[in-house]
């Protein structure tokens, strides 16, 4: 029998549904996560189920006490999620777009990320914040950002960037069961991505990279959407007789250094594809790590493919120019030979 396939959002939805069935402490909160709160004619049904429909159907199964529509008060509800997590619930908060984190940054940076440490280990903040990221949707500068590097920099946060429906479900289940504050990034262009997803619940450990394609000549470490672009680049490289290994770290904090170093030891070449702006991002961080710990493995300079140091432009030709793509990645790889 063929394996069941789900799209990215359905995989996330199933993860939340199964975890809410398993643990009554899991609640969802955010803007329009159900939608239509207090509208009589909906009779408890949702209006939206999330802006991209990822939380569809959950309010019907779990009720409005556990799928909580919030006002457009990001500091208020993210802080409330932190406080609820510190006192025993396990909230999944939805921050519609990662750019909106700017509105509530204190509650993440100075509250959620720091409570456990400041309190000498006596508090924990088992909170997942799901958020949409990424360009390519013609959504312009405030709704297209890739800010995983910003959050990876902050101790007390874990950062997760899934690239497939299978990983999305397993990583979200891990995130919900994790006692730390996890920022979970969902690329806005992943709606159409389908893949095999087991029906039973399963978890994927944090800090364990996945080799999405094995190869011998060049290592491509790719994050989020860049995984798909790098797989396309690898197909192109194959035509040039170059075998690329594509590694998806899946979690950026914690980060699986061993898998990357073992691959570079084998291939001697490294390209890192990250849709972030080019400085102080996860790509520069991985490059520094390999230069430090794997310098002797390298037969060529480390190449990074990232977006430019500009806000994300709106106009389609500009955004297409802005975004990394398979061609940019394969050209960077070929330049190493």
């Amino acid at each position: 029998m063929a394996e069941r396939e789900l799209n990215f959002g359905e995989a996330l939805n199933e993860a939340m549904r199964q975890e809410m069935q398993r643990d009554p402490k899991v609640v969802i909160m955010g803007e329009d996560v159900a939608g239509g709160a207090d509208v009589d004619h909906l009779e408890g049904d949702e209006a939206w189920g999330g802006v991209l429909g990822v939380t569809k159907g959950l309010v019907k199964e779990f009720g409005r006490e556990r799928v909580i529509d919030t006002p457009i008060s990001e500091s208020g509800f993210i802080g409330a999620a932190v406080g609820a997590a510190a006192t025993g619930l396990r909230p999944i908060a939805e921050m519609m777009f990662v750019g909106f984190m700017g509105v509530c940054f204190d509650q993440l940076l100075n509250q959620g990320a720091k409570l456990r440490y400041m309190f000498g280990g006596k508090a924990k903040v088992p909170l997942v914040i799901r958020t949409i990221c990424g360009g390519g949707y013609r959504a312009a500068a405030q709704h297209s950002q890739v800010l995983h590097s910003l959050f990876t920099h902050i101790p007390g946060l874990k950062t997760v960037v899934p690239s497939t429906p299978y990983d999305a479900k397993g990583l979200l289940i891990s995130a919900i069961r994790d006692d730390d504050l996890v920022i979970f990034f969902e690329d806005i262009t992943f709606g159409g991505i389908k893949g095999a997803v087991p029906e039973e619940d399963y978890s994927i450990p944090f800090g364990k990279a996945d080799v999405k394609r094995a190869g011998e000549d060049v290592t491509i470490v790719a994050i989020g959407k860049m995984v798909h672009h790098s797989l396309a680049a690898a197909t192109e490289l194959e035509k040039q007789d170059k075998s690329a290994e594509v590694i998806d770290p899946r979690t950026l904090s914690p980060f699986d250094e061993d898998t990357v170093l073992a691959s570079v030891e084998k291939t001697g070449r490294l390209v890192i594809a990250d849709e972030s702006h080019p400085r102080c991002n996860v790509a520069t961080d991985i490059a520094a790590m390999v230069a430090d710990k794997g310098f002797d493995y390298l037969n060529a300079p480390i190449k990074m493919v990232s977006a430019p140091h500009t806000p994300v432009p709106f106009s389609p030709p500009l955004e297409d120019h802005y975004l990394p793509n398979p061609q940019k990645i394969s050209e960077a790889a070929l330049g190493l030979f």
Binding site: V27, E65, R66, I68, S75, G76, F77, I78, G79, A80, A81, V82, G83, A84, A85, A86, T87, G88, L89, D106, Q107, N110, Q111, L115, M118, F119, A123
Partner: peptide
């Protein structure tokens, strides 16, 4: 639930513990 070095940092957290008690 903590003294707080950020002026205005506490009220959202209070909504959280309030939500826990209510839930």
């Amino acid at each position: 639930l903590g003294a707080n070095g950020i002026v205005g940092g506490g009220p959202p957290l209070a909504c959280g513990s309030g939500l826990t008690a209510k839930t």
